[in-house]
Design a protein around this nucleic acid. Structure first.
Lengths: 236, 236
DNA sequence: CGCTGTCTTGAGGACGGTCAATGTTCGTGG
DNA sequence: CCACGAACATTGACCGTCCTCAAGACAGCG
């Protein structure tokens, strides 16, 4: 089962057995990729979309000087660049963070689903709009929060997303991002990320060590960063 | 014709006469609204979406202290909260900036279009993903640009969007946002917005006066802010 | 004509960036 | 099993951008 985690704890009950089977059938290939590998280029037309089964993927834009701004971080269960289907090309790059397992879905097969399966189409549409909701939360984070809160807010989101697919117990989870990556996500330098992580550690809220995050006080972390996960549409 | 500007200069040629007629038929009411009026509430279920015919609308989120962060500014031709259809509820508020003319489309009617008109559905989906692309550009703006460039970048986007629907000639356009609004869009204080506008004026790039923007050197403005409008998918 | 919201400007300070040095971890190959 | 190098993490000193606070000017509107 490739799409086992797709919309898990979201609206999966709206996915009929037959729609799910059609979705599974639309997969062209399942692949493993190494860490730090580019999997889709900005501006080029794309003919397939990538569904993430294992690992972490990010999307980012470059400025003139080659400095990156991450615009999304994806976890298993995410249909990473499904928006490339209606758009036809991407406005950003997509790359793996750690090693990943991905499924590739050709757009011609999505065309069939669009015509034959309105219910599934609406769920696929929904899933691309979840990404848009996350984008909005990132805008809020960058526009209104100070440095500590930005970092805390970022981890709150990752934790909530991972928990929805069973990869966090609320206290621990695997996490392949470096401090430089965090800087590119939060709009700050890796040096300052380091200081903010120290602050969060010293306040006994959370810590990061060797690709692993430990959260000791999730509710304090959420309070600190004004975090409300309702935009993720996770049930229960 | 209500949807005269919808996807104008984007993919409107893909909109068949019959699809367009069906879209027009799905409108329940056309209304005029005053300036600074809330038209959709965060968190509440919504049963209609708003298409903007005239005026400016913004979407925003509040932090704990009631400080706003704008996440989008809409111009005529935008289907402002169409994403509320697959989502079922919004994660943010929607309000008019100046006086507006809007068309309301009940979601039950969109359900019919979804089942009967896959081609139209794909275009509607596309239009919600344009908004997501703009969100990404806003993330980039807030994360990677300094204050002058942020303001310049914002105006470059507004100008490009207005030009696509014939409301800017590349040099002049109507603009109802106050400096406080600009601050809420660009993640800075209105005081600093004021200083940056002065800088742009003194460098002979652009100026704002009485709800009107004059751009004297658009290409310099774009260079300054690393602006590339390709994410808007405007043709020609 | 006065009220209110918006704009403008200044002075001082805090937050986060820059630059640079050092420490740590981990994979690779001898 | 250890030696080495590369990538990543950590810390300090200094500095610039942008925020805060505050006062005053201006414009639109009753």
């Amino acid at each position: 089962m490739i799409f086992a985690d797709f919309l898990r704890n979201r609206r999966r009950e709206q996915l009929s057995a037959s729609d799910l089977a059609a979705l599974e059938d639309s997969v062209w290939d399942v692949q493993k990729t190494r860490a730090r590998q580019l999997i889709a280029h900005a501006r080029q037309p794309i003919r397939m979309s990538t569904y993430l089964m294992e690992g972490f993927i990010c999307r980012y834009m470059d400025d003139r000087n080659g400095l990156r701004q991450l615009v999304a971080v994806h976890v298993p269960g995410d249909f990473v660049d499904l928006h490339g289907y209606p758009l036809g090309r991407l406005d950003h790059d997509v790359a793996t963070l750690g090693a990943c397992k991905i499924a590739l879905v050709p757009h011609e097969r999505l065309d069939r689903l669009l015509v034959e399966r309105p219910n599934l189409t609406k769920l696929l549409w929904f899933s691309t709009l979840l990404d848009a909701a996350m984008h909005r939360e990132w805008i809020f984070r960058l526009g209104r929060l100070d440095a500590v809160a930005r970092v805390a807010h970022f981890f709150c989101e990752i934790e909530a997303k991972l928990r929805a697919v069973g990869l966090s117990d609320g206290q621990h989870f695997a996490f392949p991002l470096t401090q430089a990556d965090l800087g590119e996500a939060c709009g700050m330098t890796s040096v300052h990320i380091n200081r903010m992580l120290r602050e969060l550690r010293e306040r006994n809220l959370m810590q990061v060590q060797r690709n692993r995050v430990t959260i000791s006080d999730l509710s304090a972390l959420r309070r600190l960063s004004d975090y409300d996960p309702s935009y993720l549409f996770i049930e229960g």
